[in-house]
Computed example of a mutant assay.
Amino acid sequence: MIPYGKQEITQQDIDSVVTVLQSDFLTQGPKVPEFENLLSVHTGATHALAVNSATSALHIACLALGLGEGDWLWTSPITFVASANCGLYCGAQIDFVDIDPDTYNMCPKRLEEKLIKAKAEDKLPKVVVPVHLCGQPCDMEAIGRLAKEYGFKVIEDASHAIGGQYHGKPIGNCEFSDITVFSFHPVKIITTAEGGAVVTNSKVLANKMALLRSHGITRDTAQMEGPSHGAWYYQQVDLGFNYRMTELQGALGVTQIQRLEQFIKARHYLANRYNDLLKALPVILPYQLENTYSGLHLYVIRLKLDEISLTHQQVFNALRENGIGVNLHYIPIHTQPYYQKMGFNVGDFPVAEQYYREAISLPMYHTMTVAQQDEVMQVLTRILAAKVQN
Rank of each mutant, 00 (worst) to 15 (best):
H59S: 01
A57N: 01
E121D: 13
L111K: 14
S53I: 06
K109N: 13
V128Q: 04
C90P: 07
L146N: 09
D71M: 04
L115Y: 15
A118V: 12
A50R: 02
P125N: 08
N105C: 13
L65P: 00
C62R: 00
R110A: 14
D122V: 10
T103N: 10
P77C: 11
E112T: 15
T79D: 09
C86D: 00
L133F: 10
H59F: 03
W74G: 14
L115E: 14
G66H: 04
F80R: 04
K109I: 15
P137K: 06
A61T: 03
V127W: 02
T55L: 00
M140S: 15
V81W: 02
P108Y: 06
V81K: 04
A50K: 00
S83G: 14
Y104H: 11
I116H: 07
K114M: 11
K126H: 09
M140I: 08
P125K: 06
M140W: 12
A64V: 01
W74F: 09
T79I: 05
Q136K: 11
T55H: 00
E121Y: 07
S56A: 11
K126N: 13
S76N: 06
W74P: 12
I143E: 06
I143V: 15
C86P: 00
E69P: 06
I99M: 11
P108F: 12
A84K: 03
D71W: 03
P130M: 08
D102P: 04
A64H: 01
I99A: 10
L67I: 06
L73M: 15
E121Q: 12
L124C: 13
D98E: 13
R110E: 11
R110P: 08
I60S: 00
P137D: 11
Q93Y: 07
V127D: 03
L67P: 01
D71L: 03
A82L: 02
V81T: 09
K109E: 15
V97H: 07
A82N: 03
K109F: 15
D122Y: 11
L111A: 09
K119S: 14
A142R: 12
I94A: 05
K114E: 15
D102W: 05
C86R: 02
T55Y: 02
S53L: 04
R110F: 12
L88K: 12
V51H: 01
L63T: 04
R110S: 14
K109M: 11
Y104E: 15
V127E: 02
D100I: 14
D95R: 14
A84W: 04
L67C: 02
C62A: 06
A82I: 05
I143H: 07
I60P: 01
R145F: 07
G70Y: 09
L88P: 05
G87C: 06
T79C: 11
I94Q: 06
M106N: 13
L73G: 10
I60D: 00
F96P: 14
H59Y: 01
L67Y: 00
K117C: 07
T103Y: 08
A50W: 00
T75S: 13
K126T: 13
G68W: 04
I143L: 08
A142K: 10
I60M: 02
V129Y: 02
Y104L: 12
K123M: 06
